[in-house]
């Protein structure tokens, strides 16, 4: 019996070649659903565990892992949620899942030494900066930081912006809401633009001090060119 035939029985509704092979089919489906449950706990809490399991079951069949790095499995999950019809009443679900995926990526990202405070103090508009490998920017039209923080179970605190930056000052990845315009500014820095150009991409009332303080405390800047 070829592996192509057996592989089809593992992910599709094909009949299993013998009854006991169903144990493997169950292992595959359940272990992959479990990996998504562990990776997207807030998304799961928000939709409820039964709905999440049903949703994850569809996802694992459509997007099985392409490598054995299970701790990052689910990179396609946010995009899947964007078009998953039964979840359309929760339009922010995809961005919330993107934040959770960003937290996992940040947790496992490479270590880097942040720039010292004096280099930080000497920054001018002509400088370009390298952001930490563990930094992630999630731009959203929804208050996903508030939703993530409350798990959807409490009234949402007001936020002036809906963009979020994930920083890893030590070993734990931490999401922070960005001040208004911060998403555009950080996005420009991530594209390799100078501080001055990034500033001109952002609105005039951008709270630059607040953003730079966040980056400094979150070990977000690793070099200045």
């Amino acid at each position: 019996m070829t592996h192509a035939r057996l592989a089809a029985a593992l992910l599709e509704a094909d009949a299993v070649p013998q009854p006991r092979f169903a144990i493997h089919r169950n292992n595959v489906t359940h272990s992959l659903i479990k990996a998504l449950e562990e990776g997207f706990p807030v998304t799961r809490r928000l939709v409820g565990s039964d709905f999440f399991t049903a949703m994850a079951r569809v996802f694992v069949r459509q997007h099985p892992p392409r490598n054995p790095l299970l701790m990052l499995y689910g990179i396609d999950f946010p995009a899947f949620l964007r078009t998953f019809a039964p979840a359309q009443s929760l339009p922010y679900l995809s961005d919330l899942a993107a934040l959770e995926q960003a937290l996992r990526e940040s947790y496992h990202a490479a270590d880097a030494t942040p720039i010292p405070p004096d280099a930080f103090a000497a920054l001018t508009e002509t400088h370009r900066v390298t952001l930490a490998p563990a930094l992630r920017l999630i731009r959203s039209d929804w208050p996903i930081w508030s939703i993530w923080t409350t798990g959807g179970e409490a009234p949402l605190p007001p936020t002036e912006s809906t963009d979020v930056v994930v920083l890893r000052p030590g070993f734990d990845a931490i999401p922070h809401p960005l001040p208004a315009g911060g998403g555009r500014f950080l996005g420009a820095l991530l594209d390799g633009q100078s501080l001055g150009r990034a500033l001109s991409a952002a609105p005039e009332n951008l709270d630059l001090t607040a953003i730079l303080t966040l980056l400094l405390h979150g070990n977000g800047l690793v070099s200045v060119i």
């Binding site: 192509a4 592989a7 992910l11 892992p65 299970l70």
Partner: peptide, 17 residues
């Protein structure tokens, strides 16, 4: 055991003849 086929990884140790 085998656990992947044509680029898909199944996260299980699958049996061999």
């Amino acid at each position: 055991a085998w656990s992947s086929h044509e680029g898909i990884w199944f996260n299980d140790l699958l049996p061999l003849p």
